[in-house]
């Protein structure tokens, strides 16, 4: 397998009035062709900002302050807006969290799809772009695609809209797809269908997928590799098997423990004590230290990232955790 995307020491900071928010702080990972990477973490851990940073689409006051996003020998963190728009929606595309809000309410579905095709392939005729759009809608399992082309977003259900957003993201056969919680707004049955569809398309087209989610069960099913984020940093990063079944970071362990098990009877689910600290008020040393059962004096200094048993972990207590 060859490398599709390499992120090196990426930092995305927001210079707000209340102080500097390090939403993404020094993260690195790679994605191979045909691979699915899952980024998991609680709300506010910096998952979505990581996704947007990959296509360098950060709203002010945020910006990428350091690091590189290497894609096909190009560093997306340092490209001009024009070059970036060529890549966005073409070679890399993104699916947003909320399908209700991600389609323009006053433009027909058809127009929104066709323009995506035309701006990336200026030589395509309108008829061809139309046909391609209808085919794509059919591929994502939208019933009566021809009719839907003339519809406006408010005439469609949430599930339909999400399929359209996915069709829009896939229409130019991107090499890399970033899906930011693509199924949170949908009900469970549709969730499964959509995830299955994305996995199938990724494997079929030999493209890569970055799946951003807080649902560790989804990640377990879908992903080849997993990066666990906490307060803007990656705390554990490795293969699905290693990270989920042999976690080395206390936070990952906690997350997995939170999942209900079928063979166990329990009145209360496990929860990690406390809440994730505000990015404006991080604890000294390891960010997880004040919630961590293993924490001691040593954790007053942020741990180095070490490679152990094939995955990267940032924790002083790796050796005590089995």
């Amino acid at each position: 397998m060859s490398e599709m995307l390499r992120v090196e020491n990426l930092k995305t900071y927001f210079d707000t009035r209340k102080g500097l928010v390090k939403a993404v702080d020094d993260i690195s990972f790679t994605i191979e062709k045909g691979e699915i990477l899952g980024i998991v973490g609680e709300s506010g851990a910096g998952k979505s900002i990581t996704g947007f940073s990959l296509i360098n689409l950060i709203d002010s006051p945020g910006e990428i302050v350091a690091g590189r996003v290497l894609f096909d020998d190009r560093d997306l963190a340092h490209l001009s807006e024009d070059e970036l728009s060529n890549i966005r929606g073409g070679e890399i595309s993104m699916i947003f969290q909320d399908p209700q809000m991600s389609l323009n309410p006053v433009i027909t579905i058809g127009k929104q799809l066709i323009e995506t095709v035309i701006y990336h392939n200026p030589e395509t005729s309108k008829q061809d772009a139309y046909k391609k759009s209808v085919d794509m809608l059919e591929l994502v399992g939208l019933p009566a695609p021809e009719k839907r082309m003339a519809s406006f977003p408010h005439q469609l259900s949430g599930g339909m809209k999400q399929r359209i957003v996915i069709a829009m993201a896939l229409i130019n056969s991107p090499k890399l797809l970033i899906a930011d919680e693509p199924t949170t707004a949908l009900d469970v049955t549709i969730q499964a269908q959509i995830l299955y569809l994305m996995k199938k398309l990724t494997k079929e087209y030999e493209s890569s997928l970055v799946l951003i989610t807080h649902d560790i069960a989804v990640v377990a099913q879908m992903c080849d590799k997993i990066a666990v984020m906490y307060a803007g940093r990656i705390v554990e990063y490795g293969s699905n098997q290693d990270v989920l079944y042999n976690s080395k970071h206390p936070y990952t362990k906690g997350l997995i423990q939170c999942l209900p098990k079928l063979n166990e009877e329990k009145d209360r689910l496990f929860q990690i004590p406390g809440v994730m600290p505000s990015l404006l008020d991080l604890p000294e040393g390891c960010y997880f230290s004040d919630r961590c059962p293993y924490a001691d004096e040593e954790c007053k200094i942020y741990p180095e990232t070490t490679t152990i048993e094939g995955r990267q972990v940032s924790c002083h207590k790796v050796n005590q955790i089995s």
Binding site: I87, R88, G89, S93, S102, Y119, M168
Partner: peptide, 13 residues
């Protein structure tokens, strides 16, 4: 969000 998506689709500014 739909403006962000329009940008993410690579449409010119």
């Amino acid at each position: 969000d739909y403006i962000k998506l329009a940008k993410a689709k690579g449409l010119p500014n």
